Computed example of a mutant assay.
Amino acid sequence: MYSKEESQRLKREFWIDFADKYPRKWVLYDTKIKDFSFKFYVDNKKAQVLIDIEHRNDDKRIVYFEKLESLKHILEDDFVKDLVFEKNFVLENGKTISRVWVEKTDISVSNKKYWEEIFEFFHEKMHNIEMFYFEYGDYIRDLEINT
């Protein structure tokens, strides 16, 4: 068991090593849609690549989610398999968002032997989500086009 400081140092080292191995600018928050972002998440049980839709207006949040859902077969067949789609995902703070994600389990950020596996997972899945977004982003961004 690591102290809080050791755990923070290890996570910082993890992200620095990831950035060194894959030195590129990820889309992440630069989607051109307010409160629509791509995220990496890792802890001592799982690694996830996420699409979070956190729009304050629930109607808009749901429209964006349904647009993604309408492209689910394309997204899964051509880009990323085994995605989970959740229209009303409740965060720990009680906020409801929409989330689409893929995860890898049975790994640990605290164990360096898993880092390469996590790095590869992050790179492959996020790259593919970005490629999907580059192709279908105009449709997703345009709220005038119905799902």
Rank of each mutant, 00 (worst) to 15 (best):
Y2P: 02
S3D: 04
E5R: 13
E6C: 11
S7D: 10
Q8M: 13
K11F: 05
K11A: 12
K11M: 10
R12W: 00
D17W: 00
D17M: 06
D17Y: 00
A19E: 12
D20V: 07
D20I: 09
K21V: 08
K21P: 02
P23I: 09
P23F: 08
R24P: 01
L28W: 01
Y29R: 14
Y29E: 15
Y29V: 14
D30Y: 04
D30F: 04
T31P: 06
K32F: 10
I33A: 06
I33L: 06
K34T: 14
K34M: 05
K34W: 00
D35K: 09
F36V: 15
F38C: 14
F40Q: 07
F40D: 10
F40R: 07
F40H: 10
Y41T: 03
Y41D: 07
V42W: 01
D43I: 06
K46W: 00
K46A: 11
A47T: 07
Q48C: 11
D52A: 11
D52W: 00
I53L: 10
I53C: 10
I53E: 05
E54F: 00
R56A: 11
D59P: 02
K60Q: 03
K60A: 04
I62V: 15
I62N: 08
Y64V: 09
E66G: 05
K67L: 01
E69V: 00
L71K: 11
H73R: 12
H73E: 13
H73Q: 10
I74K: 08
L75G: 05
L75N: 03
D78I: 01
F79T: 07
V80I: 10
L83R: 06
V84D: 07
K87A: 15
F89G: 07
F89C: 05
V90G: 02
L91F: 03
E92A: 08
N93M: 01
G94I: 08
K95R: 09
T96E: 11
R99N: 02
R99V: 03
W101N: 14
V102L: 02
E103S: 12
E103A: 07
E103Y: 00
K104I: 14
I107A: 14
S108V: 15
V109M: 15
V109H: 07
V109I: 15
S110I: 12
N111I: 14
N111E: 12
K113N: 07
K113H: 00
K113F: 01
I118P: 07
I118T: 12
F119E: 04
F119Q: 04
E120S: 13
K125N: 12
M126F: 02
H127V: 04
N128P: 04
M131L: 11
M131E: 13
M131S: 10
F132R: 08
Y133T: 09
Y133A: 11
Y133I: 11
F134Q: 11
E135A: 13
E135S: 12
Y136S: 11
G137P: 03
I140R: 01
I140Q: 03
I140D: 03
R141F: 08
L143M: 10
E144F: 03
I145M: 08
N146H: 07
T147D: 06
